[in-house]
Design a protein around this nucleic acid. Sequence first.
DNA 1: CAGTAACCGAGACGGTACGTCGAGTCTTACA
DNA 2: TGTAAGACTCGACGTACCGTCTCGGTTACTG
Lengths: 200, 200, 200, 200
Amino acid sequence: METARPGRSRSEASRLAILEATRDELVERGYDKLSLERIAAAAGVGKQTIYRWYPSKSALVAEGVLHGHLMDHIDLPDTGDIRADLTHWLMAFAGAGPESDSAALIRATSAATAEDETVAARYEEQVTVVVRTALRARLTAGMEVGQVRRDAPVTAVVESLVGTVLFRVLTRQPVSAEFVADLVSLLFSGIGGSDSTPRV
Amino acid sequence: METARPGRSRSEASRLAILEATRDELVERGYDKLSLERIAAAAGVGKQTIYRWYPSKSALVAEGVLHGHLMDHIDLPDTGDIRADLTHWLMAFAGAGPESDSAALIRATSAATAEDETVAARYEEQVTVVVRTALRARLTAGMEVGQVRRDAPVTAVVESLVGTVLFRVLTRQPVSAEFVADLVSLLFSGIGGSDSTPRV
Amino acid sequence: METARPGRSRSEASRLAILEATRDELVERGYDKLSLERIAAAAGVGKQTIYRWYPSKSALVAEGVLHGHLMDHIDLPDTGDIRADLTHWLMAFAGAGPESDSAALIRATSAATAEDETVAARYEEQVTVVVRTALRARLTAGMEVGQVRRDAPVTAVVESLVGTVLFRVLTRQPVSAEFVADLVSLLFSGIGGSDSTPRV
Amino acid sequence: METARPGRSRSEASRLAILEATRDELVERGYDKLSLERIAAAAGVGKQTIYRWYPSKSALVAEGVLHGHLMDHIDLPDTGDIRADLTHWLMAFAGAGPESDSAALIRATSAATAEDETVAARYEEQVTVVVRTALRARLTAGMEVGQVRRDAPVTAVVESLVGTVLFRVLTRQPVSAEFVADLVSLLFSGIGGSDSTPRV
DNA sequence: CAGTAACCGAGACGGTACGTCGAGTCTTACA
DNA sequence: TGTAAGACTCGACGTACCGTCTCGGTTACTG
C-alpha cells in the first residue's frame, strides 16, 4: 500500500471541475481552439493543477470525453431483435445531429486521437475493447437464436460500425434513420450476388 | 474575362512550394503542431503569400492534402475479381502502416475535418463523392457479372469502407491483410444467420 | 551602411511608450514587483516587442531610467560659488524626499544595478563618467579661482558624493539641507586635526 | 517563562539551516533570483517553517545577511593610526573584489533595502547605528590625540564612507587600495583651496 | 517604354496561449 | 502541536505563432 504519502492530498473536486469545464469548452469551441487557461479559469483552478493531473491537452481531452460522455452510450441492451438493438445503439452513440454535443465531443476525441498516439492507445483500450466486449455478447446471444452467423468477424464488425459513424460525424453528415437502416442491412445481408464466393 | 489585370501575376512556384512544405510538416508533426511560419520559411515564401492563397490553416491543409495525396489512391481498377480489387484499394488508401506518410496525412486530414466545417464540406465533395462515383462504377460492373447484389446501398458501402479504414488509422492499428480480408468478407456475406430478416 | 533591411521597420512610438510605462510602474511599485505584462498592457504593446528591444528586465529599467530621468539632473552650473553649486546639484539629484519619484527611480536603478552586471557597466558608463566629466570641469573652474585644491581626487569626490546620496535614498532617509551642508563641508574642509598628516 | 508549552518546540537548528541556505543562495544567484522553495529544499525544511519565522522574502534576507555577515566586519580597532584603521576597515567591509561573497551579499542587501522599506529601517538600525557608534568612538579617540577635528560631522562621515563603498560594489568596481587611500585622504584633508570658506 | 498596380520576401506589430516557476496558503501524516 | 512534504490558487515569466501591416524591391500589363 502506498496511500500514506505526506503532504496535502489531491483535490478530487478540482479534477471533476476541470473535466466538466473541458467538456463545456470542447462542445462550444472544438479541440484546437481549446485553451487550458480558459478551462482553468472556468473551473476555478490553477493551470498547474491541470498539468499535475494530465500531461497534455490531448490526454485531458481523452480523459474528459471518454469518461464523461462516451461511456454513457456504450451499453447494448438485448430486446430480442438484434437489428433494432444495433440501430438504436448506433443512433444513440452518434447523437441527435451534426450540431449535437455528442457529435462535437466525438469530433474532439477524434482530433485528440489523431494528434497523440498515447491517446490513441487509450481510446483503443477504453472504447474499442469495451464496445467489442458488449457487441460480442450481443452477437453471441444472436447466434443462439439463429439471427447471427456463428463465424461473424467481431472485430471487423465493431470497427466498421464505429468507424462508419465516426466518418459521418467528422464530415458533418447526419446519422439519420435511413442511413443507419442501410448500414445495418448491409451488415446483415452483405452485398454479395449469386456468383460471389459462397459462405464457408 | 478577368485575366487582363494590371500588376504582377501570382507565382505558381510559390504555391507549389507552399503545398509541398505543408505536406512535409503534416507528416512530420501533425495537424495541430503545424506552423504557418515554419511552412513559410521552408517554402522560402512570405507569410502574406500563404494568406493570399488560403484563408486559414485548415483550408491550406485541405487543399494540400486532398490534391497532393489522397487523390492519388482513388482510382479503382477492374480486374474482374471485385473482392481483390476492393482489398487492394483499401490497403493502398491506408498506406503501409501506422507510421507511413499516408497514415499521417489521413490523421492530419481527419483533425482538420473535425475542426472546421468548411473543410468537412470540401472533404465530402472532393473525397467522398469521387470515391462513391468510382465505387458505384465498379459495383455496377460487378452486378453485371453477378458478383454484387443489384440493390447494394452504395453510400453505406462507401462510407463504411472509408470510415473503417479511417478508424484503424486514427487508432494507430495496422490495416493488415487479415483485417481487410475480414472486412471484405463481412461486406459481401454479412453476418445474418438463418433466422435473420430475408433479403428484400 | 546597413539601414536598408527588408521588413517593416521598428516602431519608435512603441519604444517610447514602453519606456514611459516602465517609469510609471517603477515609481508606483518598485523594481522587483515590476511586471513586463503590466508594462506591455499599459503601453498598448505586445510583450514580444519589449523583448525585441531589451533583452532583460534589468536592461529595460536601465535604459528607461537612465535616459528618461537621471540624465536630466546631471548638468552642474557654475554660479561662482562652488559649494552652493554642489549643494544644489546634490539635492536636485536626490529629489524632494524618500517618497519622491526621483528617489523611487534611484532605488529601482540601484536594484537593477545590483542584479545585473551588464547594467552595472552601463550605469558606470552613462552616469559615473558623465558626472565625473561635469564635476571635473566645475572643479577645474573652482581651482582657477582658488576655491578648490589643485590635487583634488576627482574620482573619489564623484563617487563619494553619488554614493552618499545613494545610501541616503536606499535607506529612505531624507536628503535634507542640513545633511547636504554637512556633506559639502566635510568635502571641503575634511576632518583632519592639527596632528593629521599635512597636505602634500 | 514560555518553554513549558505542549507540543514540539521550534527548532533552532532549522532556523540556522534556513539562514545558511539563504546566504548560499544570495551569493550564488543574487536577490531577485532568490527562491524560497530552493532555500527550503536546501535547508531540509518545509516552506511553512520559513514563513513562521520571517514574514517575507526581504525580511529573511535582512535577517540572514545582517546577522550572518555584515556584523562580522563592523568592529573598528584602534591602533593609534586613525587613517590606517579606517582604510583597513573599509577594505574589510567591501571584501576582496567584485566577485567576492562579501560583495555579493552587499549587493543583495542593497536590492532588498531598495525594495522594502521595513528592511531599509532594519538596515538603518542594525548597520548604520552600529557603525556610527563604533566610528564615533574611534573619532573621539582621534580627537583626543589631535588627529581629528573636534567638530567632525559624524553622521556625514559614516554615510559617506559606507555609501561610497556601496557605490563601488554596486557598480562592480574594485575597492582597491588606491581608491581607499584617495577616499581617506579626501576625508581628512578636504578639497578646499586657499579661498574656500574658512573653517567655522 | 514609362507608369503603375499588384505581387514578392522579409519581418515587426498587437495579441493569445503555451508550459514552467515561484509565492504564499492550506492540508495531510508523522513525531 | 510543530514539522516535512506537497497540493492548492494565483500571477508572471519568456517563447511560439497567429493574422495583419509595412517595408524595399520585382514583374508585367497599360496608356
